[in-house]
């Protein structure tokens, strides 16, 4: 394993910075030195973090109105004329315009970055209609679409920088709620590579987005029982890091995935496909089990839908029990 997680990252507490705010600030900074960047917004910039870009780069901020289909396909036209468009809206509205993302962006291989805030039950009080639990699966199925879901504010800033530097269409989740900080530095972000945050031989927990912090907390719970868990921030859902999964499967023989998403087709699906092809081992999938979300505070909903650290730890114990003797 290339990563050397000797000093296991410690949770350094919840900050006021959500992933969406971290995204917006980082993008505004990037645009200071990259004139190619333009941002498209559908009357929701205050919610997506794009307001930071609007304040600093008014002339490159394109207000599209509440019209996501036109916004998504227009971005392809902007890319075709040499801009690097960043489409910003809520994840559910990216699903609304997914056919435009498919045909006008991905099929035409246009260099558009689709940045989706408000994914998963982390959305909280707005309820089931607003909580995208299908987006990773849907966008992952589009040929040529890279799919990212960073874990904390520094990871987010590194991810948007990598996404802008990357030539090709990307779908990336941010997040609504204040994020638990995981990284003190994040200067080694690489699209397509998982990052091993903690090394343990008994089980590997593969997580993305808000679930990474919970996976680290789950590893602490497991350590109390003498179980050594690896924890991976799998910020790239597609292309999935086959080499890392193969190695973890070989070394631990038990995998748990954790995501704020339907357990069908997202990170769990990507990991299961990879394991089945390269190095099969028992796996458990933590996520929302093919249901819609509902209103509630994000922490309450994590309890309700089984996305908490104890739920991840329980899945780890189950999968360890399934290991071949």
């Amino acid at each position: 394993m290339a990563a050397s997680p000797n000093a296991a990252p410690q949770l350094i507490g919840t900050s006021g910075d959500s992933l969406r705010e971290a995204f917006g600030k980082a993008l505004a900074d990037l645009a200071d030195r990259d004139p190619r960047i333009v941002v498209l917004d559908a009357d929701i910039a205050g919610g997506t973090g794009a307001h930071h870009f609007r304040t600093r780069h008014r002339d490159r901020f394109i207000q599209c109105g509440i019209a996501e289909q036109n916004m998504m396909a227009m971005a392809a036209g902007l890319a075709a004329t040499g801009h690097v468009p960043v489409v910003t809206t809520f994840a559910v509205f990216c699903l609304r315009a997914i056919e435009q993302a498919r045909l006008s962006i991905a099929y035409a291989r246009r260099n558009v970055k689709i940045v989706a805030s408000h994914p998963g039950i982390d959305v909280g009080p707005d309820g089931g209609s607003a909580q995208a639990l299908e987006d990773l699966a849907a966008f992952r199925a589009i040929p040529g679409m890279t799919v990212l879901s960073p874990a904390d504010p520094l990871d987010m800033a590194a991810a948007i920088e990598a996404a802008i530097a990357f030539d090709g269409p990307i779908y990336m989740r941010t997040g609504r709620s204040p994020a638990t900080r995981i990284y003190e530095r994040r200067d080694d972000f690489e699209i397509g590579k998982g990052h091993v945050l903690r090394d343990g031989k008994d089980v590997a927990i593969i997580a993305c987005g808000v679930e990474v912090a919970r996976a680290l907390a789950a590893a602490d719970l497991l350590a109390n029982d003498g179980i050594a868990a690896s924890v991976v921030n799998m910020a790239t859902i597609k292309p999935i890091d086959h080499a890392l999964l193969e190695e973890l499967s070989a070394r631990t023989g038990a995998i748990v995935t954790a995501e704020d998403h339907n357990t069908l087709g997202g990170l769990g699906g990507a990991v299961a496909e990879s394991l089945a092809l390269h190095r099969p081992c028992p796996a458990e999938f933590v996520g929302v089990r093919d249901q819609f979300g509902r209103s509630g505070e994000p922490g309450e909903l994590a309890e309700l839908f089984g996305l908490t650290a104890p739920a991840i730890a329980a899945a780890a114990r189950r999968v360890i029990a399934r290991k071949s003797p």
Binding site: V38, R60, I62, Q69, N70, M72, A73, M74, A75, A76, G77, L78, A79, A80, T81, G82, H83, P85, E99, Q100, L103, S104
Partner: peptide
């Protein structure tokens, strides 16, 4: 519908 939107993006993109 999509090609129309793409053309709008091109009109805006070249004007910018």
């Amino acid at each position: 519908g999509q090609g129309f939107s793409v053309a709008i993006g091109m009109a805006l993109g070249t004007r910018m």
